[in-house]
Amino acid sequence: MRTMIALTLMLTGSSALADDMDDAHRQALQGRDSYWNCLAREYSPDRVKTMSEQDFIANIAAACPSERQNFRVSLIDYLAMQHPDEDSGRHLSTANHAIELAQKDIVTAFIRRKGAPN
């Protein structure tokens, strides 16, 4: 009987952990999508027509602060659940790298568009 209760508690606990992991993953994806959508609004042709490359890079680096922070926090939470034994600084570094890559992609698209013949 005790073994059955312990087994039931263990299965319930692992099910709850899986649900928490799924929720954290979903939130990280929502944070990413929200940040990307905000960056895409910053890239709208009407806003960037006359911007120099340097101005656009500075604009993107400063754009969407709440969306960027939400993405960072939700990704760190997910990574901490996925890899609980890793140093939290490593999770922060991974999240910051993901943000840098998002910004780099938008800047690359801007540069290509600027260089394209009209």
Results as ranks from 00 to 15, higher is better:
Asp19Gln: 12
Asp19Val: 04
Asp19Phe: 15
Asp20Glu: 13
Asp20Lys: 08
Asp20Tyr: 00
Met21Cys: 10
Met21Gln: 12
Met21Lys: 15
Met21Tyr: 12
Met21Asp: 13
Asp22Tyr: 11
Asp22Ser: 05
Asp23Gly: 05
Asp23Trp: 03
Ala24Tyr: 09
Ala24Trp: 10
Ala24Ser: 12
Ala24Cys: 05
Ala24Gln: 10
His25Val: 08
His25Ala: 11
Arg26Leu: 04
Arg26Thr: 00
Arg26Asp: 08
Arg26His: 10
Arg26Gln: 01
Gln27Gly: 00
Gln27Arg: 14
Gln27Leu: 09
Gln27Asn: 12
Gln27Ala: 15
Ala28Val: 00
Ala28Tyr: 02
Leu29Ser: 05
Gln30Asp: 07
Gly31Ala: 08
Gly31Val: 02
Gly31Pro: 04
Arg32Gly: 01
Asp33Ser: 15
Asn37Lys: 11
Asn37Val: 07
Cys38Tyr: 11
Cys38Ser: 05
Cys38Lys: 09
Leu39Asn: 01
Leu39Ala: 04
Leu39Cys: 06
Ala40Asp: 12
Arg41Gln: 07
Arg41Met: 06
Arg41Ala: 10
Glu42Val: 10
Glu42Gln: 06
Glu42His: 00
Glu42Phe: 09
Glu42Pro: 01
Tyr43Thr: 01
Tyr43Trp: 07
Ser44Ala: 14
Pro45Ser: 10
Pro45Ala: 02
Asp46Cys: 03
Asp46Tyr: 14
Arg47Glu: 06
Arg47Thr: 05
Arg47Ala: 08
Val48Met: 01
Val48Ile: 15
Val48Gly: 07
Lys49Met: 13
Lys49Tyr: 14
Lys49Asp: 08
Thr50Leu: 13
Thr50Tyr: 14
Thr50His: 14
Met51Glu: 04
Met51Leu: 14
Ser52Asp: 03
Ser52His: 00
Ser52Phe: 00
Glu53Pro: 03
Glu53Gln: 05
